[in-house]
């Protein structure tokens, strides 16, 4: 499936990694939209309030784990309190530089989390992932 069938939200405190993710998504081809947050709290606020994805396309969430203030785990806990019909519209992926086994184990224990992806995000990884969403 090509990227035009998806919206993307990237949450990462690192400016570089946000920029890289944005580029990678664009290079996969024509995404319906890409939104970037350097602060997880802003992202969760946004997700709670918006309803401008009325086209029914899936929203791919790429979330970093280690961030100041609200980290990836804090974010997923908040995310899981959302109503099921809202959550169903998202596909949640952790994207991280962590090689800590605890982080990896913990991250896949959340029901909303589909997979744990290693940085750096690449065009091939995103392309493969879109096939399976």
């Amino acid at each position: 499936m090509d990227a035009s069938q998806f919206h993307f939200i990237v949450i990462d405190d690192s400016f570089f990694d946000c920029r890289i993710a944005e580029k990678v998504i664009q290079n996969v081809g024509n995404p319906a939209s890409v939104k970037v947050f350097q602060n997880a709290e802003d992202a969760i606020q946004y997700i709670r309030q918006i309803d401008d994805y009325s086209d029914g396309k899936k929203i791919i969430l790429f979330v970093d784990i280690q961030m100041p203030l609200m980290d990836g785990f804090g974010f997923v806990q908040e995310f899981e309190t959302l109503p099921a019909e809202v959550k169903d519209r998202y596909a949640f992926y952790f994207v991280t530089s962590s090689i800590n086994e605890n982080d990896i184990r913990r991250s896949v224990n959340f029901p909303s989390v589909r997979r744990f992806l290693n940085k750096p995000l690449t065009v091939n990884v995103v392309r493969d992932l879109l096939e399976t969403v």
């Binding site: 890289i20 580029k23 990678v24 280690q66 940085k119 750096p120």
Partner: peptide, 22 residues
């Protein structure tokens, strides 16, 4: 330290990947 040392390296690897394909 693992995180803070690795994360700029992975950013660079990501950037290299993009640069190679354009």
């Amino acid at each position: 330290v693992t995180h803070d040392l690795r994360s700029p390296i992975l950013s660079v690897l990501g950037a290299i990947n993009i640069a190679k394909q354009t």
